[in-house]
């Protein structure tokens, strides 16, 4: 029987970081692609929607500022949150279990095993997404800032290096756009498990049923912890409390 119990999966900081990231990502995609494909038939039309190139580029820079702000917010959060809450988690760091999960999951997908891989707090897919964004932010913000402030960049780097980062900016953007709108959108929108959308980005909560399916190892640990707490201290189960065990 499906439980109505909800687990807090993402706290308000994580959800705000994600909202800042995806809104700026969409804006940067719309204002960036016409520059990459400026000779296409649609590029001048998109540019005209913004009232000319100068306006569109200004919007691109605003989007860039929001995206960089979300990255800075996240890095500060990684440092400050564990200090204030006295909780420290390395759940997002890749482990050997991710490799065995990957192998097990492929055996399951191919039909060689009846058992799907049992994921902990973050599956190897989610860890891939997280570190892909981490790598992408370094490339995109680094190259973008060099182009935004070329005279400052030229204090440290030769001209050909700054030119190379422009190529990296354009091509890493393409990789990110494809990864997000194919892979990430499948996982959170188009997958039959979540269509039309997994709303965890909005309310941050996941049902016990979803947890059982997506993160059984974490669920088991949370419930065990919860039971021992209930036995020891007696208070009844409170929504969202248990997930505080992990950030």
């Amino acid at each position: 029987m499906a439980s109505t119990k909800k687990f807090e999966r993402f706290n308000i900081h994580q959800r705000l970081q994600h909202i800042m990231m995806f809104t700026s990502f969409i804006v940067l995609t719309i204002t960036g692609l016409p520059i990459k494909y400026n000779h296409s038939w649609w590029a001048p039309k998109v540019t005209a929607l913004f009232g000319g190139f100068d306006n569109m580029f200004a919007v691109h820079l605003i989007g860039a500022a929001v995206m960089i702000a979300s990255a800075v917010y996240h890095l500060l959060y990684l440092i400050i949150y564990p200090i204030i809450k006295r909780k420290f988690s390395i759940a997002a760091v890749p482990t050997i279990k991710d490799v065995t999960d990957l192998v097990q999951n492929f055996r399951y997908l191919f039909g060689l095993s009846k058992e799907a891989a049992k994921f902990d707090r973050y599956s190897y897919k989610e860890k891939f997404d997280y570190w892909a964004v981490f790598w992408g932010m370094v490339i995109m913000a680094g190259s973008g800032l060099m182009m935004w402030f070329p005279d400052i960049a030229a204090q440290f780097f030769p001209r050909w290096f700054i030119d190379s980062t422009r190529i990296a900016h354009s091509d890493e953007a393409m990789l990110a756009i494809l990864a997000i709108f194919i892979w990430h959108f499948y996982n959170v929108h188009f997958s039959p498990d979540f269509f039309p959308m997994n709303f965890v980005w909005f309310h941050g909560k996941m049902s016990e049923e979803s947890m059982e399916h997506e993160h059984p190892v974490e669920l088991e640990r949370l419930l065990e912890n919860d039971n021992s707490m209930t036995r020891g201290q007696g208070p009844s189960y409170k929504k969202g409390e248990s997930s505080e065990i992990k950030m």
């Binding site: 070329p150 005279d151 030229a154 204090q155 440290f156 780097f157 030769p158 001209r159 050909w160 290096f161 700054i162 030119d163």
Partner: peptide, 13 residues
């Protein structure tokens, strides 16, 4: 256009 004259602007093509 780009504010200050950096020698590195000439290191490349």
């Amino acid at each position: 256009c780009h504010n200050t004259a950096q020698p590195n602007f000439a290191v490349g093509s």
